[in-house]
Design a binder for these strands. Structure first.
Length: 410
DNA sequence: AAGTCGGGGCG
DNA sequence: CGCCCAGACTT
């Protein structure tokens, strides 16, 4: 049922039809001359390209910043973040001079926060080891933190004119459809197949940057994941998936990551001035480097994070533990939990939250857990932007305290 | 080669 | 409610 029907050309093929000539061509072969395809694509791109902020002034810094932001992230979301980053950090030196908290504060809400941490690291590498200038080759760029196969090719091509082929989700989709190739793209074989085809295209043109951007733009505007606009495609007559009438059968993906439940008990500690106690998460892993109220994972016996509406004993015990571990006294009875649920790609998050107002002396005595790395600080609600916070934590605070600016408490 | 890492918009 | 998005990194 979840399988989409796949049209096989062999079913209706008449005896003696020239099937052999087609199927004996190598799987990585393009259906038409590479130079011709590249020219058609470039012509289309010249007339169809969107006016995007990072296409204006193609410095390596702006190309790099935009490409990192665009990893697994839609263009519409990136536009505003790109504007804020370039305004606050006009060049790589400004970014390197900032603190990681500053960078993550501006990155908050964009997701995949290792990108933000690596962005900051890479800026410092560029300044400290390359005199403030980006490496000008793909291999040099590839050595920067957070710059992988795709991003190194993108910067090398778009900012330096190198004929390196970019392979992202758009390119996979466009080229697997063009060739009606059912090799799974999330495998080394699929990666090799698309890279070979894209390389053939950028090698056959004098403007590899245009072909690279054209491939991605075609995937974004015409060769969409669902309901592609084949009538507007410059490659319509060459496209084998279109021939078969089944463009949406491609690309094939092998992996289906399962979503696991994660239940968290958290305490929102508020002092008499209305400041919040936040602690910094470890640098690696989920929400790495971001700040949040003290919390801990609660084993969910049911296996279903949404099963229990009422506060469980495991949750109140977790709340008590969070307070005691920080030298605070836990109340004998608890109010009902404020429950916040968020769905990520690979997680079902459920927060059971309680607000704990602290008298001045208790607030002063509060210290982060002395496990070493765990940092903690009091922060005004309106100063949250000074550090990185996840959208989940912002939702937790809003649910527990009310909308920012009109504190329900104090 | 498989697992991990956000968040939101869309059909 | 499942899928996808200008992927990279770890194990």
């Amino acid at each position: 049922m979840t399988h989409r029907s796949r049209t096989k050309s062999s079913a209706g093929a008449a005896p003696g039809a020239p099937l052999v000539a087609k199927t004996t061509m190598g799987a990585s072969t393009l259906p038409d001359d590479a130079a011709l395809l590249a020219a058609q694509l470039s012509r289309w791109f010249a007339g169809a390209a969107r006016d995007l902020p990072w296409r204006h002034d193609r410095t390596p810094y702006r190309v790099w910043l935009s490409e990192v932001m665009l990893q697994q992230t839609r263009v519409a979301v990136v536009v505003d973040y790109f504007a804020r980053f370039t305004a606050r950090f006009p060049d790589v030196g400004a970014l390197a001079a900032a603190s990681e908290d500053d960078v993550l504060g501006l990155w908050s809400g964009l997701g995949y926060y290792s990108r933000g941490r690596n962005l900051h690291k890479a800026a410092r590498v560029v300044v400290d080891e390359h005199g403030g200038r980006f490496p000008s080759t793909r291999d040099g760029l590839r050595a920067l933190p957070g710059v992988g196969d795709y991003t190194s090719a993108a910067i090398a091509s778009l900012a330096f004119g190198e004929s390196a082929a970019v392979v992202d989700g758009n390119v996979h989709r466009v080229l697997m459809r063009l060739c009606a190739d059912d090799t799974a793209i999330d495998t080394p074989a699929g990666q090799r197949a698309t890279t070979a085809r894209a390389t053939a295209l950028v090698t056959a043109t004098s403007s590899p940057a245009t072909v690279n951007e054209g491939l991605m733009e075609l995937g974004a505007l015409v060769c969409a994941p669902r309901a592609p606009s084949c009538g507007a495609c410059p490659w319509r007559r060459s496209c084998r998936a279109h021939d078969a009438g089944a463009p949406e059968d491609y690309p094939v993906k092998a992996r289906r990551p399962a979503r696991r439940a994660l239940r968290v008990a958290a305490v929102v500690l508020v002092d008499e001035a209305g400041h919040l106690w936040l602690e910094r998460r470890a640098s690696r892993g989920l929400f790495g480097g971001l700040w949040e109220p003290p919390g801990t994972v609660v084993p969910d016996d049911a296996g279903d994070a949404a099963a229990t509406a009422a506060t469980t004993e495991a949750t109140t015990e977790a709340w008590r533990g969070l307070l005691v571990a920080r030298g605070l006294t836990a109340p004998s009875t608890w109010p009902p939990a404020v429950v916040v649920q968020r769905t990520l790609t690979h997680r079902d998050l459920r927060f059971d939250v309680v607000v704990v107002p602290l008298p001045a002396d208790a607030a002063r005595a509060l210290r982060p857990l002395d496990s070493g790395e765990l940092d903690g600080r009091w922060l005004a609600r309106g100063a949250l932007g000074a550090v990185g916070t996840s959208t989940a934590v912002r939702a937790v605070l809003e649910a527990a305290l009310g909308p920012p600016g009109s504190p329900r408490l104090l």
